[in-house]
Amino acid sequence: MTKPILKNKERIDQLFSTDVKIIQNKDVFSYSVDSVLLSRFPKFPSKGLVVDLCSGNGAVGLFASTRTKAKIVEIELQERLADMGQRSIELNQLQDQVSMIEDNLNNLLAYVPRSGVDLILCNPPYFKTSKSSKKNLSPYYLLARHEITTNLEEICAVSQQALKSNGRLALVHRPDRFMEIIETLKKYKLAPKRIQFVYPKQNKEANMLLIEAIKDGSLDGLKILPPLVIHKDNGEYTDEVFAIYFGKETGPRAYMYVLECADGSLYTGYTTDLKKRLKTHNAGKGAKYTKGRLPVKLLYWESFNHKNAAMKAEKHFKQKTRAEKLAYIKDKTDTAI
């Protein structure tokens, strides 16, 4: 299955540092930066068994599939989210490695051997429930974000039962629950080993933390990693986060470019060689669209350190109206040719 049927309001998104595609629906569930960071944080076993608790639409486990050859079991209580995850598994043709289970995580041992799991990943509900809780109107997000069907205590208890001795639990959570997280981990003989605080911008308070614990491990040797900042002051990703989303620079720079055709229309593409690509277009070999609208001239370009970033910029630019495209180019005249 390479093209699953999308349901109402669904779309397919991709983490551009990988080939993995995820079925999303903003009204039901969409992964965010916390899922991406969690899938890149822990030390992955080269083989064995990995479990993704509270898996939502399966993003964490699917992203993790690029970092290990281990079998990955995802478990999600909500039928709608589990269905999205299953179709994403099929979309990526990962059925031999990744499986989705629709069930309560308290039943995990019905699907995996006790003390048989090498790594557990969990992006859990962050918020305790109370009468004053700020609850999302969507029932899907309500269950995903608030401790209604599970909580930190249950997650640690299940992890303690399922993990091998020296197996690892990796969580992404809220800094305001840091002390509770540490105490709960210790209660279930899960020794915290690596912690990283995540900040939306410099000089802002941390709004996430990543933590990795080892079952039956020593309480000595805890490492506090350098802080991870998500955005620069101008709103762009920091270099570290950009590399997570788009991959490190592995080859020549890439470009999103805009051509003005002979009939005045605009064409957008990406390339790693602007001069060669322009010559190819004017030779009638660049694209079917430009072939009948020659000659073309280079109107604008942007440079990126990875082709996937250029492809994303191309995609976003194509979604603009002609007026929006021209306004965008005008605003960026200092970088245009």
Rank of each mutant, 00 (worst) to 15 (best):
T68K: 01
L171Y: 08
K279L: 09
N166D: 13
L62Q: 13
L185T: 06
V117S: 12
Y328E: 07
N136L: 14
S88G: 03
R253S: 10
V51K: 00
T272W: 03
V198M: 12
L266H: 03
Y188W: 11
K47T: 12
Y270V: 00
T149G: 08
E79W: 11
A283W: 01
Y300D: 15
K201V: 15
S132R: 03
V172N: 12
K312R: 12
S17Q: 09
Q86F: 08
T184A: 15
N123K: 04
N107G: 14
F246A: 09
I244K: 00
V28Q: 07
A162D: 04
K69S: 12
S39Y: 02
Q78N: 11
C261Q: 11
L49R: 04
D96A: 12
F178Q: 05
Q97S: 08
K71Q: 05
L137A: 13
L210R: 13
F246Q: 05
G85R: 00
F317K: 02
N234L: 00
M208A: 00
A309H: 04
E314G: 09
Q319F: 01
Q97I: 01
K71M: 06
K285D: 09
H281W: 13
T2Y: 04
K248H: 04
Q196W: 15
R194Y: 11
T271W: 00
S55G: 07
E10W: 13
I182S: 10
V117P: 10
